[in-house]
Design a protein around this nucleic acid. Structure first.
Lengths: 331, 331
DNA sequence: TTTAAGATTGAAACGGGTTTCAACAGAATC
DNA sequence: GATTCTGTTGAAACCCGTTTCAATCTTAAA
């Protein structure tokens, strides 16, 4: 492994000069630059990133912490962040913390110890929010919202409006017995969706019917069975996310319940998959791409940062597809 | 940011002693150890991982290079590797190289420069195989196979057998006009699957019908249209992977072609998703979990390493589900 | 021609743990 | 009591690019 001193010796200059050639920090005489470049080429020298980042206190790395690599919502987000980061010469380190607080804490600590230039956290552990500021690097929380101010930004969607839209759409499509599968309590993202649904129901004289479910499909499968047990007359289901919606569909399909004819279904997130499966899933679109890109901007301190409360909300929209009847058809 | 020298001062010992307490490399007198631990606690000291890895030339990191983070096959693999690595105190750094040779080369270089302890490559660029050995770290190639020997191991499946199994199953289920959607030529994994299909056809007097397609679903959608155009009488389709199979189903569904009644369908990989969608996908199972775990073992040099040719093949199996008719039903 | 200003360059310090090496203390052996 | 061995400990070197600082060399202004 050739080091910068080897290159320097071969080129007949000092290590400092080699460094300057590599980084272009200070002009170097043309002939020396030439010799240095040739030596680098000949020796296949690649500067050691560890040594470099030890001094610079930057590793050109952005940490991305996601609760599950199995949920396409998060991999899609990670993909967007990855692309945005690479465009600026940064790389991302993806930490899959399996919804586990300790793993998340460990990831944060590792990132701090690895001189990461920032962390994007797509995780909901309120317990950790307090600790986030002690690491001296920019932190952006995506898809969650808390009261604490020790984070550079919260990027989230108008989940409340999403809940409303879903309920409204199902109603417009003819449903009268809506059931909301809400995410586990305590999560803002889950709570807000539910409240949107709840308020819409109250305003329109519909009965609230709620079950609670984790964000993954195993939970979705089990919960759907229970849901059908408890609410046999259901004609419209709002799932807490697309993966759960897909599980719901699976159970309905297995039981020969026609979608959307007997029961209509709305998901949440609008992951790619939801338009790829058959039938295509009606869902609430989250601007994942915009959120991911924004997260990178905030980390790298570009453009206008969110001021008041360090929060930035993104709009959601309903994407009508095949698991609900077309509104026109209903009229 | 407290450093080891700060801790040492506070505990009234030398930095060397603090280091010894942290790493347990040399016995330290009980009272001093006590003072050091207290100082660490009080100052919230976390050793700087960069400095540590600069000296140790190890960063407790395993690089994982995947061609696409959108394909669940790779994220599932990454998840398994992640779990196996964490169990041993290593972390993974996931590089999503978007099927791009330059990005892959850059990832490798970064990993080398970052003192990674090894790299698991799930990518098929033969061009890169030659370069792999120049990085002085263990490299394991998963889901690919080449002639070069400058890699610690190749872990792959019996794709050929997979191709045969798929053809055999479809035939057993009553299909006579099989079409194979094979992956792009030049990839061993794609070639072997195709050859299994081809040989089975030849042995049983079936006509070979082949189209070629990238491994992602956009390509799958387009290719299915073309396939139906070129082979209107098709009654059985073998897709190069599950994502493509899902796209195929989507098009068939859209055209009101019944699966499995009119056309039967077999995927490849057996990603989680294939049993989650409706109808559940009949597919060729790859032991992703076993491969991922093995990859980590090889990187960390545990257990018996593959000897002859540094290759290790894993068996595949056919998982009959809902996109093919049950064999019994046919008999 | 002289002086001030600017461009290059290398020696050495630096960042922050880790390890080597020599020194010292107390214990065991003769 | 002298000697050897074992257990502890700190000073300093080390890992390897980067940067500071002062020195050297040009070039331009006076």
């Amino acid at each position: 492994m050739a080091g910068i001193r080897d290159v320097a010796r071969r080129a007949g200059v000092s290590p400092a000069t080699v460094s300057r050639v590599i980084n272009g920090t200070t002009p170097v005489a043309a002939d020396k630059r030439e010799r240095v470049l040739r030596a680098i080429e000949e020796m296949g020298f690649v500067p050691n990133e560890v040594a470099r980042s030890l001094f610079k206190k930057s590793s050109k790395t952005i940490g991305v912490i996601i609760p599950s690599i199995r949920n396409p919502y998060f991999t899609q987000l990670a993909d967007v962040i990855d692309e945005a980061a690479k465009k600026r010469g940064y790389r991302i380190v993806l930490y899959n913390v399996h919804h586990d607080l300790d793993q998340e804490r460990a990831a944060l600590q590792m990132l701090a110890a690895a001189n990461a230039d920032g962390v994007i956290v797509a995780s909901n552990n309120e317990a950790l929010q307090e600790e986030l500021s002690q690491y001296h690097m920019p932190v952006v929380v995506v898809d969650a919202l808390f009261q604490t101010q020790n984070v550079n930004a919260y990027l989230y969607c108008d989940y409340y409006q999403g809940g409303r839209l879903a309920a409204e759409h199902l109603t417009a499509c003819g449903c009268r017995k809506l059931v909301c599968i809400r995410g586990v309590q305590g999560l803002y993202t889950a709570q807000a969706r539910y409240e949107g649904y709840r308020d819409y129901c109250r305003e329109h004289g519909l009965t609230e019917q709620v079950v609670e479910c984790d964000y993954d499909f195993e939970a979705g499968l089990a919960m759907t069975e229970e849901l059908l047990e408890r609410f046999p007359q259901v004609d419209g289901i709002i799932a807490c996310n697309d993966m759960v919606a897909i599980s719901v569909y699976k159970i309905l399909h297995k039981r020969n319940i026609a979608v959307p004819d007997q029961i209509q279904l709305v998901g949440f997130d609008d992951i790619h998959l939801s338009s790829l499966i058959s039938p295509e899933l009606t869902t609430i679109h989250q601007p994942i791409t915009a959120m991911g890109r924004r997260a990178v901007e905030v980390i790298l301190n570009e453009g206008q940062l969110p001021k008041e409360g360090r929060r930035q909300s993104f709009p959601v929209s309903l994407v009508p597809r095949e698991t609900t009847k077309r509104k026109e058809a209903v009229l």
